[in-house]
Design a protein around this nucleic acid. Sequence first.
DNA 1: TTTATAATCGACACAAAGGTCGAATATATA
DNA 2: TATATATTCGACCTTTGTGTCGATTATAAA
Lengths: 149, 149
Amino acid sequence: MIGLSQGVGYAVKALACLNEDGKGHFVREVAECAQVPPAYLTKVFKKLVDAGILTSKRGWAGGTRLARAPGSITLLEITEAIDGNDWNRGCLLGQEFCSDERACPTHDFWKVQREAIAEKLRNTTLAACIEFERNRGTLGTCKSVSHRS
Amino acid sequence: MIGLSQGVGYAVKALACLNEDGKGHFVREVAECAQVPPAYLTKVFKKLVDAGILTSKRGWAGGTRLARAPGSITLLEITEAIDGNDWNRGCLLGQEFCSDERACPTHDFWKVQREAIAEKLRNTTLAACIEFERNRGTLGTCKSVSHRS
DNA sequence: TTTATAATCGACACAAAGGTCGAATATATA
DNA sequence: TATATATTCGACCTTTGTGTCGATTATAAA
């Protein structure tokens, strides 16, 4: 199946559930809101924290929140946080050695397509995703996630 | 890593090593020519036989050969033989439920890209691959594969 | 300082792709 | 018919992505 990993999809859906109130939100509640496996989402969130997209705090009144405004977070950032920086380096035909010097028959074509995909991800912000979901009414049933303090 | 499976790459490289002399060629020799794992190539070839791209015969004077002329075999056929018919149905963001009715933010974009990829694979024949490799001198060191009878 | 709490960590389980190996099967020739 | 031979088949292994669970750690409030 051609495309990014499922983890990227989880990340996008979950991040779209966080709002910008500066309060910490709990992984389990975000998971329910986004309809993704809670235990697995903790792993996804860890990568997003490491990438500087989320911040987190443990304990009472802890939780997770966006590190920056949704308008400054791109899908490309999210993708690279989850799938790594090499997600865009592969050959279409899955060949191990495929480069400008030693190309496969679809190399030039794929180079253009890959860049188009990266460009699309770079130009799509989390804010746009939230707006998109809101317009379609597909953001899940929860309005906002509860918090303490 | 975005792209088709490694098996598709193996298939393309191996098929490019078969010539049209109507003789049977041996999996192990084709594997050496294409520089792919021999034991694994038998599995790949099985799928190509089932798909009607190759024919095979067991025993003495047996082997494998192209079922049709390279000009009538497309990369799309090869792709679907190895990765199945669903290789092109997935969401870019790896979301399970993503359709025209319930779209992800990149759905419309990805629909166009997917079709462009399918079109490229449909328009690229095995003959073109052979020609391409021959021009670049990247077809491996073997000229042709030995055979019996 | 104790306690409740939420993220973090480590271990494990499962499925699919990639990969290997030996036994079984079919086939043309001798 | 017997034999050598090349594909086919089944079993198994490893790695990676997905997913679960319980223990650990950090934190703010009581």
